[in-house]
């Protein structure tokens, strides 16, 4: 039983979609309802470099990103969309851990099935893994297939970069402790 749980959790983790956000940056859907920061965006630029950070604003032709270096240094970047090969925006934490926890509980609950658990426990693992994997992709938006302007709902400034606000003066989202 313990081995099955390990397999379930292991498979679940390897099948999940990931992102490069720092720990604590992305919060669960309930908390995200009341916060006013942008999602975490990962851009692959045409010259082979990459830019990651908080999505500040996006329009049909430009993307404003507030990157955060490893030492906490702020790196504001404005990129023309023509220079971006692809982008991935993660809006909130996917709560995959909750699915994994429910799957683990489910596998344990098959004790009630007697020897039928030989059947139900693996099905729990398969279904739980598939559900966890699917859940991990729920908060993600990708360009392509989406267009850049369609990501604006998850920018700090969905109305576009406000005039009078300097990207360089913006402070990054505080880390949760």
């Amino acid at each position: 039983m313990r081995g099955s749980l390990g397999v379930a959790l292991g498979v679940l983790l390897t099948a999940c979609a990931g992102n490069t956000s720092p720990p604590g940056f992305l919060v669960g859907p309930r908390i995200a309802q009341s916060q006013a920061y942008g999602g975490w965006v990962e851009l692959r630029v045409a010259n082979g470099t990459s830019v990651d950070g908080e999505m500040i604003a996006v329009t049909a032709d430009s993307v404003w990103v507030l990157g955060v270096g490893r030492e906490g240094a702020v790196a504001p970047v404005v990129l023309p969309v023509a220079s971006i090969r692809e982008g991935k925006l993660t809006i909130n934490d996917a709560e995959v851990g909750n699915v994994a926890g429910m799957t683990a509980l489910g596998v344990l609950s098959t004790i009630s099935n007697g020897l039928v658990l030989i059947l139900t426990a693996p099905v729990w693992i398969i279904v739980g893994t598939a559900a966890g994997s699917a859940q991990s992709y729920t908060p993600q938006r990708r360009v392509p297939p989406l267009r850049w302007a369609e990501l604006n709902a998850s920018a700090r400034f969905p109305q576009g970069m406000p005039s009078g606000v300097s990207l360089a003066q913006l402070r990054p989202k505080p880390r949760r402790r």
């Binding site: 669960g28 859907p29 309930r30 995200a32 309802q33 809006i91 909130n92 996917a94 709560e95 995959v96 909750n98 699915v99 926890g101 429910m102 509980l105 489910g106 609950s109 559900a131 859940q135 729920t138 908060p139």
Partner: peptide, 10 residues
């Protein structure tokens, strides 16, 4: 498990 089912989407 049903009662605690708590994965959400925004």
């Amino acid at each position: 498990v049903v009662a605690l089912a708590c994965a959400h989407r925004l």
